[in-house]
């Protein structure tokens, strides 16, 4: 079983990303869980969503304290919260940023870093505005490429299920992120 923690900001679509990821993994034959941290919802405040993905049925239902991997929807969160809290050594950190993995020297010692410019991909596909780009679908392409928890076809079906508008554009963004994510080594 692998456990994934998605860091985002309220309104950014972290919960939808978590749900779509679970749905995509389930469609490719995995057992899954996706759940939000239900607190005080405020636009822009740091929020978390959780995923468990396994080849066996999942019975455990507590929160995730020691994720195998983390996904960061907004790179500015790195300054305000400790995104590696509890992260298992050797785990992936997948960050939406215009930087390269080597630029995150502080994480490279204990973890593996993958970067994806999901903002640029979102804008290229006319998803959201420059101030509020819709990055949650794009980043999933990077997540399934690096973590191999599902396949592109299942992800496309899941995104179309959960996204109310611009379905094709969202799928295209995820596919582009799948091709453009920068990382080294194996998940």
């Amino acid at each position: 079983m692998i456990e994934i923690l998605i860091h985002g900001r309220g309104g950014q679509g972290g919960v939808k990303a978590s749900l779509s990821l679970a749905s995509a993994a389930a469609k490719s034959g995995k057992y899954v869980q996706s759940f939000p941290e239900f607190g005080v919802e405020r636009r822009g405040a740091p929020v978390k969503a959780f995923n468990r993905i396994s080849d066996e049925p999942i019975v455990i239902r507590s929160k995730i304290y020691n994720p195998d991997h983390v996904v960061v929807l907004d790179h500015t969160l790195i300054q305000s919260i400790n995104i590696t809290e509890g992260l298992k050594k050797g785990g992936w950190i997948i960050i939406n940023t215009n930087k390269k993995p080597g630029d995150f020297k502080e994480f490279c010692k204990n973890y593996k870093v993958a970067t994806i410019n999901a903002k640029e991909i979102a804008l290229r596909n006319r998803l959201g505005s420059r101030a509020a780009p819709i990055v949650n679908t794009a980043i999933l392409g990077a997540v399934i490429k690096v973590l191999k928890v599902s396949d592109k076809e299942s992800l496309a079906i899941a995104i179309k299920e959960f996204v109310p508008v611009k379905r094709e554009e969202n799928v295209k963004a995820a596919y582009e992120a799948y091709d453009e994510v920068i990382f080294e080594g194996e998940a």
Binding site: S34, F35, F38, R61
Partner: peptide
């Protein structure tokens, strides 16, 4: 509430 109502699973 939340742990089941908002937890998506197979």
């Amino acid at each position: 509430s939340v742990v089941t109502s908002n937890l998506c699973e197979n």
